[in-house]
Computed example of a mutant assay.
Amino acid sequence: MEDSSHIKLDNLLYSCVDRKQRSNEQFVAEHAFGYIISGETHMATSEGIKVMRAGDIGLVRRNQLLKSIKIPPPDGEFKSLNIFLEQGFLRKYAIEYKIEQTERYTGISMMLLSPDPFIKGYFDSLIPYFDRPEHLKSALGELKTKEAIQLLLQHDPALKSFLFDFSEPWKIDLETYMNKNYMYNVPIAQFAKLTGRSLAGFKRDFTKIFKTSPSYWLQQRRLSEAYFLIKDKRRKPSEIYLDLGFENFSHFSYTFKNTFGVSPTRL
């Protein structure tokens, strides 16, 4: 199946693919609450790699960089359901249920939840709507989103601070962050936001630290890592270019040869 097998209904997303597939999106803008129906997904963030398998329920925090790979089971399809808990909806929920804004959340940003039959039943109840989307009216979608929040708080009341921290990223050490996250293919504006800066402030601080522009530094940092992986670690160029943030192999090969005087495949 192609990307058309990703069906989105408002803030609900159903994925179904029959081959290994990388996610195109590498920035998580809103909290994502998901369930793996079949197959598995490998998710990589600065905290490491987490594998979610069939039956697993996960929660991913907003405002972070993430790479994921969907892997179908042998002779089957990868299937998952996700609901995105948007900030505007959570703010209204907090007002309606008199939930005070919590302190800044400092815990992990991606977690697997322990098995919960109520949450499992909740995701099962969503599946029919993707066959008959006309039945998911606006009011019903709002009720299903509220149900998701209530089930999470029932599962673990401590998730309150995860869900209802509405603060934005604060100013952090730019050099450390960029050296940990250079391989994510996102706009410079996203890096600025995630390091707690305006775009102008990010570019100013970046140039002061690295003595060059963000775009040029990112390209050279990715190419340097590619050279190391190919020459010293004997990795195949076709296996690494996406992991390092290049959009396609031809662009990677062209810039690599321009920089090092030899194509990655010849090296």
Rank of each mutant, 00 (worst) to 15 (best):
M1P: 12
D3G: 10
L9A: 05
D10P: 01
D10H: 08
C16N: 13
R19L: 08
Q21L: 15
N24A: 14
E25H: 13
E25L: 14
Q26K: 11
V28S: 07
V28Y: 05
E30T: 13
E30R: 11
A32Y: 03
G34H: 05
Y35F: 13
Y35M: 02
I36Q: 04
S38D: 12
G39P: 04
H42M: 04
S46C: 04
K50A: 05
R53W: 00
A54Q: 05
G55Q: 05
D56N: 12
V60E: 05
Q64Y: 09
S68F: 06
S68Q: 12
K70D: 14
I71D: 01
P74A: 08
G76K: 07
E77I: 07
K79C: 10
N82E: 13
E86I: 11
E86N: 11
E86A: 09
G88F: 08
K92W: 00
I95E: 15
Y97L: 10
K98H: 11
I99M: 10
Q101T: 14
Q101C: 09
T102D: 05
E103I: 10
R104S: 08
R104I: 13
Y105W: 10
Y105C: 06
T106Y: 00
M110H: 07
M110P: 01
M110I: 07
S114K: 15
P117A: 12
G121V: 04
S125L: 10
L126I: 05
I127K: 10
D131P: 00
L136I: 09
K137L: 15
A139R: 14
G141C: 14
E142M: 12
K144Y: 15
K146E: 12
A148G: 04
I149C: 07
I149S: 01
Q150K: 07
L152A: 07
L152H: 03
A158Y: 08
A158K: 15
L159N: 05
L159C: 07
S161E: 15
F162W: 13
F164C: 14
F164P: 14
D165M: 12
D165L: 13
S167Y: 15
K171C: 13
D173S: 08
E175I: 03
E175F: 01
E175V: 11
T176H: 09
M183N: 03
M183G: 00
Y184V: 13
V186H: 05
V186L: 07
P187S: 05
I188T: 14
Q190C: 04
A192Y: 03
A192K: 04
T195R: 05
T195C: 11
R197T: 03
G201K: 03
R204K: 15
D205L: 03
T207S: 10
T207F: 12
K208V: 07
T212S: 10
S215F: 06
S215H: 11
Y216M: 11
L218K: 14
Q219T: 14
R221M: 11
L223A: 03
L223N: 04
E225R: 15
Y227W: 12
K236W: 01
P237M: 06
S238E: 14
E239L: 03
F246N: 07
F249S: 06
F249V: 09
F252C: 06
N258R: 14
T259Q: 13
V262G: 02
S263W: 03
P264S: 02
R266G: 03
L267D: 06
